[in-house]
Structure formats: structure tokens, C-alpha cells
Design a binder for these strands. Structure first.
Lengths: 210, 210
DNA sequence: TATATTTTGTACCGTTTGGTAAATAAATAA
DNA sequence: TTATTTATTTACCAAACGGTACAAAATATA
């Protein structure tokens, strides 16, 4: 039985849990939570609605995830590595221009996807809110800041590779792209179609530095 | 006394009111309401906070404005003709390019003004929300639609005046400008400075059709 | 002065909010 | 079997939500 030394985490996964087993899959529950927070925003999503969407009783949610704030955070983290994983992928394109084009075109698809809420959870999760949501609001601002920093880095790299001219200001260009991206999210939330968003991308890409 | 026939409205203004006079100025109260809704959003602004900000007791607010929804609508209407009156003014510039440049540069100032909440009330008033705010959410979407229609009209006019080339798609260009505008609002809400926003505007204007 | 009319302040309403206590159920370990 | 551990269920909590009843106060009219 005790033949190999395992890490605590591995042990936890291998050993069958001691008490009554969970009756739901945590990741599936998080996926459902993502959808509620995504369409309602942090404040607009009530625990009652979350409870019903997850199909789990409230005390089970609290036992598994902590509280509403912690649930949002975990949903957000999963949102980042799931639905919007394409963002990081797009950066790997050979040129900065291709990276941005890929990012924005995929965003147009993603924001207007009829199988998911429109727009971006990170933009509309808590743009404005009451005092009680202030922490979450700040965390989302930080997420958007990281997004912009990622773009800046990509452009700095492109300049080193002489893929972008040296006179380009990476930060300013990144903020411009982020602005388009966030504007597209607002547009999608308001009902803009995939085609409309793609037309916006086409115009936005016309002034790429050369 | 009854020497001239007045309209009902005029009569109401001339005749001294019959009962106890209002102890506050309705427009000043609306200005304070604008600030609360602007920074908190419709749902994030509680009647308790509004009551305190307006310096009026709740029953007086309800007597004067109806309910929270009606208060928001009246504040919004005043926001349109007050703080953002510059939007309509900008359209009067001699060329479409100048109109847009004026619009976005003034928006950069406005969104980052330290004397008022950051961003735009129409964008962040109810981007996402619970069911109870659905009507307000739709009304704000309509407001943004009107903004875009105004831009489209301006570009159509410019095409007639041969100020814009005939191949330009007015609707698409309008949506591009609206996207930038709304993205700037998100950026300002997240802490972007006037200078940063102006840099975004400069890049955005580089690809103006010629 | 008396009356009608309107606003104000206090104190309250039912509902919904996020969150939890406590008993029961389901599993493992001894 | 019995004890231990964990999850679920029901029922509940205080606080905050939007909204209002009602009496007192302030004005114009008669």
C-alpha cells in the first residue's frame, strides 16, 4: 500500500476521500458559474440564480468554493484558461501584425458566439458596482492591465526582431489594441453581430505601422 | 388677474404652488443623482446612497421623481443635455474628420476629468445586470445605438459633400468610431489618463479614409 | 381664522440579499 | 459493528434592498 512517497496533492487525489463523496463535478459547476457571472456581472448574479444554475444547494457551494467572491475568482481563473485561452495562443503568431489580427478576429467570433454570453466577462464583470464589489472590480482592472502588458511585451519583441519599426511606442499601440478589444466587447454586449465586429477589426487594422 | 390665457405649464410656473413648497432644487438633485449612477451604475447605486447624496429624504425623492428607474431616466436625460452636450456640438465641425477628431479628443478629456466619475454613464450604467435592471439595460443600448446613428448620418452627409470618398461605408465607419469611443470609456474607468487616451485617439485617427 | 393642498420626517413594509447552524446521509477506517 | 469524516438538506439568520403609510409642517386660498 505505502510503497511510494507521493506529494500531498497526489496523495489527496489517489487516496479515496475519507467522508461522503462530492455529488458534483467542481469544474462543471465552475463552468456553469462562469456563464451566470459572464451574462449578469458579479453584482447582477445572485446566489439564488447561481444556486439554481449550478444545480447545487447553497451550503454545498459555500463548502466547495468559499463565498460568492471566491466563487467568482475561481470561475474567472477557469474562464481565463478555458474560453479565452485563444488570447495567449494568438500572441505566438510569427509577426505582431498577425498576432493582433488573429486576436481581434477570434475575439469577434468569441464575443458574438451564440452559445455563450456576449462580450467579455473580464470587461463587463464589474465595470461599475457598489462598494461591496470594489475588490472584484479592482481585480478585473488588474486582469485587463495584464492583457495590455502582454500586448506591450509582444510588440517589444517584434521591435527587437525588426518586425515592427523602432519608432513604434509599444505601450501606446497596446493601449490602442486593448481599447478596440474592449470596445468590441461593449458592442457585442449591445447586440453587434460577428460580421459587424469583423468590419471593425478590418478598419482598425488598416493603420498598422509599417 | 385672469387677463391672459396661458398654457397649463406656464400657469403652473407662474401660479405659486398651492401646498408646502419644495425645499430642494430638482435639477441640482438630478445632478447629484447623475454622479451616483455614473460611478456606481444603475444597480450598484442604492437608494440609501442616492438619498444621502441628494440630501433629501426617500419619500421626497419618490414624490418628485417616481421610483429608482424613473430617477435614473431623468438623470440620464439631463446627463445627455448637460455633461455630454459636446457630442452633438462636435458633429457640426466643417468636415467629418474634424468632427470625429473633436469628438474623440473631447471624450478623452471628459472621460478622464477628475471632477467627475471616469468613463461614460451610458456605457457603464448597466452593461450587465440582474433581471430587474433589464429595461434600463435595453434603454442604454438604445442610447448607444442613437449615438452610432448620429455618426452614420454625419458620414452620409460628408459623402454627399464629397468630404468623404463614396466608397466609404458610413455604418461601418460609425461602428468603428463608436467602438473606439466605448473602449476609451472602459479604459478611463480602469484608470487611463488623459494623455494615454489622447495617444489612442491619435493612433485611431491615422487610418482615416482619404 | 379655517380649510385645502402639498412636502417633509419618521418609522415602517415585504422581499431579497449573502451567508450559516444543525441534523441527516454516505462514505472510509478501525 | 462502531466511530470518524465529509457532503447534503432543510430551515433559518441579520442586513440591505426598493418602496410606502401616516402624521406633522408649511404654504395658498377662502
Amino acid at each position: 500500500m505505502n510503497d511510494v512517497v507521493n506529494t500531498e496533492k497526489a496523495a489527496k487525489k489517489l487516496k479515496k476521500a475519507r467522508g461522503r463523496p462530492l455529488e458534483f463535478n467542481q469544474n462543471e459547476a465552475l463552468d456553469k458559474a462562469i456563464n451566470v457571472f459572464w451574462s449578469r456581472g458579479y453584482e447582477g448574479a445572485s446566489m439564488a440564480e447561481l444556486t439554481e444554475a449550478l444545480g447545487i444547494n447553497k451550503p454545498s457551494i459555500y463548502a466547495a468554493f468559499g463565498n460568492k467572491e471566491a466563487l467568482f475568482r475561481k470561475a474567472l481563473e477557469r474562464y481565463k484558461t478555458g474560453p479565452i485561452a485563444f488570447v495567449g495562443e494568438a500572441m505566438k503568431a510569427p509577426t505582431a501584425r498577425q498576432a493582433v489580427e488573429k486576436l481581434l478576429m477570434q475575439a469577434a467570433d468569441f464575443f458574438s458566439d451564440e452559445n455563450t454570453p456576449n462580450g467579455c466577462m473580464i470587461v463587463q464583470g464589474a465595470l461599475t458596482c457598489g462598494e461591496s464589489a470594489h475588490t472584484i472590480q479592482q481585480e478585473l482592472i488588474a486582469y485587463r492591465g495584464n492583457f495590455e502588458a502582454m500586448l506591450t511585451q509582444r510588440f517589444d519583441l517584434a521591435k527587437k526582431q525588426e518586425d515592427l519599426p523602432s519608432h513604434v511606442n509599444s505601450k501606446q499601440l497596446a493601449k490602442y489594441i486593448a481599447t478596440i478589444h474592449q470596445g468590441m466587447s461593449v458592442q457585442a454586449t449591445s447586440g453587434a453581430t460577428r460580421e459587424e465586429l469583423l468590419a471593425v477589426v478590418e478598419i482598425a487594422m488598416k493603420n498598422w505601422p509599417n
